[in-house]
Design a protein around this nucleic acid. Structure first.
Lengths: 334, 334
DNA sequence: CTTTAGAAGGTAAACCTTTACCATAAAATT
DNA sequence: AATTTTATGGTAAAGGTTTACCTTCTAAAG
């Protein structure tokens, strides 16, 4: 790969001049000279080396995204939003999956630091622990966290509590008393917040929280399926609220396999509103999160932080109850 | 961020010694010295700067992934496989979405080249065009392509033709004669290959291909829904084969909304076997691709290529017909 | 006692950029 | 005519590594 010296030689100028042409510097370059340089660049297929540039400028135009699992559509959608904005601003994205594992989180942070990433978008798993915080080092000032709000970072907050509360209240209003909750893994703060909302709604309606109706899943359809079967068959739940849509889809299947009608015998509510929810049968009542918009907001916030534009340190996304056939008859779609 | 000089000073040694300790060099370092250095590193929270290292070594431990759209579960699953292997080998991944747009493909390739990526995994969209090829430059030797085989690169090939042919034959065997095909965008070579398989099966069975039964979708559930409605209602298709599962899910919804029974009135077959397919109603008959394994194979191949281990330049994944309720009654799941 | 080998450490070049600082000449100002 | 600007170009330092090559010293070998 040709370098700036090759170009300078071919064009018969100094490397400074080449650099000026390449970067459209304010330092003037004679038009004729510029054309010579451009010709040389083209002929040699020269591209400035971003490593050298990054090393010198202390700016790499690279951001890291640390998430639990890209194969989860919720994160995939967010990442898409992030990317599209990154693209606009000329940033590249390093994607890292953690499965919410603390060692991996730390390892990935360190990795991004070595690579001189300009910033990090973090979502899922815990970031506010001593070890993680210290791994962050100087990057601590350039982090955007998605989905938490009780954390000392700029944040894209999602109203998980409110959403879960709406979902649960909806089920209560439909007359359900035995409402099961299928949560996520223990280290999913999102699932915990949603659990909060579930409890809030029950408590406010004057019911108590029955621990036997609460189980942890792992956010996959199969875990939703297995746990839903148990909750419905053994615990006699008449309604199930799940921490995400995938598990709700598993729960629907479980109810059907038990020979029950939805929503007449069992009502089911998911969370996230991933694209297929309106196409399954019955269409899934769920809580909508504008995931793509969340991604966009996160990357925009990060870009602002990096370029030291003063930006708000908190962006709040509210959630929306979308009622479909899995809780109410007659509502076939939306 | 502390650098190697700071460490050397604090430990009272030369930078060469620090480097030797950090990289566990074969050049011996006295144990006592080593400990002094390690202590200094810890105290200063030193991390070697990957940019400087990459610049010097011409190796960045970074690979690019160029795909159409991460929010498509098919790619998300593949990317997860890629990542897991990348992780094992200490590689970082730069993810780039193209929407199959040629300009974006080229832009992303150039971007990766400037960043001195060690290699590229490419999937979706066209890579074998003059412009793209020339953008690749020296990276041309370090590309793995997923999902194509008629291309002059190391390749993870997927038997799309065979799979589509199995799917179509399955429908033919069930007695269907008016089998619609919902394809992908025109620049999706995968969708084209699947179309080939569809034609092959029809031809081999002695039927002719009816152009009016073939439409392009955009791989989303809603496009599947819309086109399926048209094919079923206007073109009187009794079976529909789609280029991916998402569109098949849309097609199922369409059939139901038309008041038709599946599979009695309309049979539907998808492609990919994404996780939810077995949970929808009826469970979707589809062609299984081991997406995660494909990702793994791709990254392993790339690692081999980069480290100049001689590796096969072609890995072939066959596809599997999974028969579920959307084509055969009695088969509720699998 | 002399020579040789090995252990341990250091020096400096190379990787590729950007840009502050200089230098020169021509044009504009006084 | 003398002085200041402006246009244009070059030189060299800095950014943080790795490693070939050197140096010094001690221990083994002859």
């Amino acid at each position: 790969m040709a370098n700036i010296i090759d170009v300078a030689q071919k064009a018969g100028v100094s490397i400074a001049t080449v650099s000026r042409v390449v970067n459209n510097s304010r330092h003037k370059v004679n038009q004729a000279t510029k054309e010579k340089v451009l010709a040389a660049i083209k002929e040699l297929d020269y591209r400035p080396n971003a490593l050298a540039k990054g090393l010198l400028m202390k700016k790499t135009m690279t951001a890291g995204i640390i998430i639990p699992d890209i194969s989860n559509p919720y994160y995939a959608e967010i990442v898409r939003g992030i990317q599209d904005i990154a693209d606009v601003h000329g940033y590249g994205i390093m994607l890292l999956n953690t499965d919410r594992n603390k060692e991996r989180i730390i390892k990935h942070i360190l990795f991004l630091r070595e690579k001189s990433a300009d910033g990090i978008i973090f979502s899922g798993g815990t970031i506010d622990e001593e070890e993680v915080l210290s791994a962050l080092g100087e990057l601590k000032e350039r982090v955007v966290v998605i989905g938490r709000h009780n954390v000392d970072f700029p944040v894209i907050a999602i109203d998980n509590v409110g959403g879960a509360s709406k979902a649960t209240k909806h089920l209560i209003d439909l007359g359900h008393r035995r409402i099961g909750y299928i949560s996520g893994p223990n280290n999913s703060t999102t699932a915990k917040e949603r659990f909060e909302g579930y409890k809030t709604a029950l408590t406010q309606a004057g019911y108590r929280v029955d621990r036997t109706l609460i189980k942890n899943g792992d956010l996959t359809p199969s875990s939703g399926y297995l746990i839903a079967k148990e909750l419905i068959y053994e615990k006699k739940a008449t309604a199930i609220f799940t921490a995400n849509d995938q598990m709700a889809i598993g729960a629907i299947r479980a109810a059907k396999d038990l020979g029950l009608r939805i929503p007449e015998d069992v009502a089911i509510v998911g969370f996230d509103n991933i694209p297929i929810t309106s196409f399954i049968d019955p269409p899934l009542t769920t809580i909508e999160i504008p995931m793509y918009q969340v991604g966009i907001a996160a990357m925009e916030m990060l870009v602002n932080i990096i370029s030291e534009k003063n930006s708000e340190r908190m962006r709040w996304f509210s959630t929306n109850l979308i009622i479909r056939g899995s809780t109410e008859n007659g509502k076939k779609n939306s």
